[in-house]
Computed example of a mutant assay.
Amino acid sequence: MMEFLSESSHTCQVKPQNEIFQSQVAVAGSRVSPWLAPVLYFVGNYFLLPSFFGHISVTGQEQLPKTGPVILAPTHRARWDSLLIPYVAGRYVTGRDLNFMVSNNECQGLQGWFVRRMGGFPVDTLHPAVSSLRHAVELLKQKQMLVIYPEGNIFRDGKLHPLKPGIARLALSAELSHPGLGVKIVPISINYSHPYPCWGTDVSIHIGSAISIQDYTNGKIKQNAKRLTEDLSKDLQRLSNSLVVSHRAFAESIN
């Protein structure tokens, strides 16, 4: 799933918790199915991901906000990312369902049927419509959790690529149009032991501290968006570097 616009933690296995799941408010273009979501979460968390991957290491889950408007900003290394993010930050962990901003071609056919019913909504990545951006702001206004890949595409070289400015502009737009809303961006770094994940691939995921958008609302929005993008990039780079070190240490420990 793709992003729109051109532009000390405890390591553990993810374990389900008995949470009272927050209900999703259906708005035009995005809806989490009340019957399909529980089925797919159950299959993904207990069967698909544990059976496909080797070791799934996660740190920083305690930093995930369980209330309020949140944008999860993961690095994008494979299509598996969009299954792993709900696994580490979805209803079994935070009690919340996720809304993914996806490209138009991912909302077509059978795949599109599932994507739309799991909270995904389409955006023309080359010419994003104002209505799509308004929908994203509306989701944040409803204090929901949104997933946007700030690099804008899948990169398999293990390096952090320049972030698109869209995520910062969207977050600032939501916060400035609804003062006191309390939007936060959570950086997440994902690393696979193989560039093209196959059966038995190990995964390391590190969740960083939430960035408060209220800290970027003074002054000119263009300068604030640039500063926010730079700070998010630094956080993702720091998380990515720590994952590389952790992954090497893990690999050495099992050899």
Results as ranks from 00 to 15, higher is better:
Ala168Tyr: 06
Pro65Glu: 10
Lys226Gln: 13
Val244Arg: 15
Gly152Lys: 02
Ser132Met: 08
Phe52Lys: 06
Leu236Gly: 06
Gly44Met: 11
Pro128His: 09
Glu230Gly: 10
Pro16Ala: 07
Lys15Gln: 15
Leu48Asp: 00
Leu163His: 05
Ser51Lys: 13
Val88Gly: 01
Trp80Ala: 03
Met118His: 01
Phe47Arg: 07
Ala28Lys: 14
Gln24Arg: 04
Thr217Arg: 08
Ser242Arg: 13
Ser33Thr: 00
Arg156Val: 14
Pro197Ile: 05
Phe52Gln: 10
Gly152Cys: 03
Gly166Phe: 12
Ala37Met: 03
Glu106Phe: 04
Arg238Ile: 11
Leu232Val: 00
Lys159Met: 13
Val14Phe: 09
Lys234Asp: 12
His135Asp: 10
Val70Lys: 02
Val27Pro: 07
Glu3Trp: 10
Gln144Tyr: 00
Ile148Phe: 04
Pro34Ser: 10
Glu19Gln: 12
Ala168Pro: 02
Thr67Pro: 02
Ser132Asp: 04
Thr11Ser: 14
Ala89Leu: 00
Glu175Asp: 10
Gly119Trp: 00
Ser51Met: 14
Trp80Cys: 01
Ile56Leu: 11
Pro128Thr: 08
Asp157Thr: 08
Phe4Ser: 07
Cys198Gln: 14
Val102Arg: 06
Ala28Gly: 14
Leu48His: 06
Pro162Ala: 09
Val43Asp: 02
Arg156Leu: 10
Leu239Val: 00
Asn45Lys: 03
Ile20Cys: 13
Ala171Phe: 05
Gln63Arg: 15
Gln22Val: 10
Val93Thr: 10
Phe121His: 04
Ser33His: 12
Arg116Gln: 11
Lys15Glu: 14
Asp231Arg: 05
Gly200Arg: 08
Ile85Pro: 01
Gln111Ser: 06
Gly208Asp: 05
Gly54Lys: 09
Val43Met: 08
Ala26Pro: 11
Tyr192Cys: 04
Arg238Lys: 14
Lys143Cys: 09
Ile167Arg: 03
Leu64Tyr: 05
His161Thr: 08
Arg227Asn: 10
Ser8Thr: 12
Gly68Lys: 01
Ile185Gln: 08
Gly54Asp: 10
Phe52Cys: 09
Asn18Val: 13
Gly219Pro: 01
